[in-house]
Simulated scan of single mutants.
Amino acid sequence: MVRDERLPEPDAEAVAGAARAACGRAVAEVTPVSKGINAIYRIDFADGDAAVLKAATFNTTAELRPEPYLLETLRDETALPLPEVLAIAEDGGPLGVFHFLLDYREGRQIRDLDGLSWSERERLVRAVGRHLARLHEFRLAETGAPVAADLGADDCGPLRMTDPGDGATPTFTTGDGVDSWGEVFASLADHPVSLVEQVQCGDDPGRFADLVPEIVAAFDGVADDVRDPASPTVLHRDFHLDNLVLAPEADADGGVGIRSVLDFGDPYVGDYRLDLAFAEDAVVRVQLPTADRAADLAGLLRRSYARERGIDPSEIVTREYHYYLLVQRCRWMAVAVDWDACDDPAAVERAYRSFVRERLAEIE
């Protein structure tokens, strides 16, 4: 759910006023952060501390509200490394729009996987598997945190909150009706599939035109094909490198130290495999190494995840998992590939085609 029209982003003076009002601290500097779809700013306080302010200029208040409350709850209930919520401005404060402040986490971010050694990529994959598993171990219905949960075992969909007005306890919910996970996934899948159907493929709008009918046919009736998860979990839906702040050095157990996980701006409740497939695409297949090496890393990610959760890795790759992988590949096929920057565009195209056909074969 987004606004009918994006709100103008507030200027630095207004943001500084909002930070002062929310935290009661003098502000030295405000810097816009060009990340995400809502307005985001780095706040440097006069005492040397730093924070991040996020304002609902694109999402509606109802859509963005769960993020800070969910972060507070996850910090209390899990071992997931998350920024501390410093303030939540339900009334909009000086900005006149819902916003919140988080402590700023210093660290590094990796955007060029090709710059990592094989051992570094393995450590990164293991760390991602562990931390994603820690998120999925969280159960809303079991939390004793200040935020309640109005969710049953079969509830799936976008995670929203009741309006906490007049001091009432805010409550997590997935909405008025109960949709099947298949119906929820069908709505999530519609956008990337429709992009591929439009064949928006960079320099060559016909590059994957021959695959489009098969992809569209594969998702016809997907709402009935995708089964409900046995135990729905809270999904991040964007567990990729831009949302991971890494420590400068490896952590004590030999992994890449993930200092913080960011951006819970659009959480859902559903099948854990969706998050895992999206993470696999982001940290393994986004630049598509050779098929054997990609398979090795994907297996490592799943084993790391399964070990942390105490499940059998063989449970992960179901028919649904191939649907989830295909959705992510559709996004890249449609809009995200810079073909001019590829060292060997023909090889990348062949890899995409091979990957898509493998997923289609598993779905049939």
Rank of each mutant, 00 (worst) to 15 (best):
360 L>V: 03
220 D>T: 11
264 F>R: 01
319 R>I: 07
163 D>H: 06
66 P>L: 14
184 V>W: 05
157 G>M: 09
198 Q>V: 02
246 L>R: 03
89 A>W: 11
195 L>Q: 05
331 R>Q: 15
25 R>Y: 04
151 L>M: 08
101 L>Y: 08
44 D>S: 14
256 V>N: 00
152 G>P: 07
54 K>S: 02
171 T>L: 13
320 E>S: 11
184 V>N: 04
231 S>N: 14
355 F>W: 10
209 A>C: 00
8 P>S: 03
204 D>C: 00
164 P>T: 09
258 I>C: 09
215 I>P: 07
345 P>T: 05
254 G>C: 11
176 D>Q: 11
47 D>T: 03
69 Y>C: 00
328 Q>N: 09
334 A>V: 03
124 L>H: 00
307 R>L: 12
157 G>V: 06
321 Y>H: 04
221 G>T: 08
5 E>D: 09
224 D>V: 13
78 T>P: 01
267 P>N: 06
179 D>M: 15
89 A>I: 09
294 A>C: 11
58 F>I: 03
24 G>F: 09
120 E>P: 08
184 V>L: 05
232 P>Q: 14
91 D>L: 06
186 A>Q: 01
38 N>T: 12
138 F>W: 04
145 A>R: 05
330 C>W: 12
217 A>P: 03
344 D>V: 08
360 L>P: 07
14 A>K: 15
198 Q>Y: 08
323 Y>Q: 05
7 L>Y: 08
279 A>Q: 02
46 A>G: 02
296 D>W: 10
268 Y>Q: 04
137 E>F: 12
4 D>G: 15
177 G>E: 15
222 V>G: 01
95 L>F: 07
307 R>H: 13
237 R>T: 15
98 F>S: 02
94 P>D: 05
180 S>A: 13
266 D>L: 07
151 L>R: 07
362 E>F: 06
243 N>S: 09
356 V>M: 11
174 T>A: 10
279 A>M: 02
326 L>Q: 12
28 A>H: 06
86 L>T: 12
320 E>R: 02
163 D>C: 08
297 L>D: 13
226 V>Y: 03
168 A>H: 15
192 P>W: 10
258 I>A: 04
139 R>S: 10
189 A>Q: 03
60 T>S: 14
21 A>Q: 00
320 E>L: 02
21 A>E: 08
243 N>L: 03
108 R>H: 05
342 C>R: 14
165 G>Q: 11
240 H>R: 00
31 T>K: 02
323 Y>K: 04
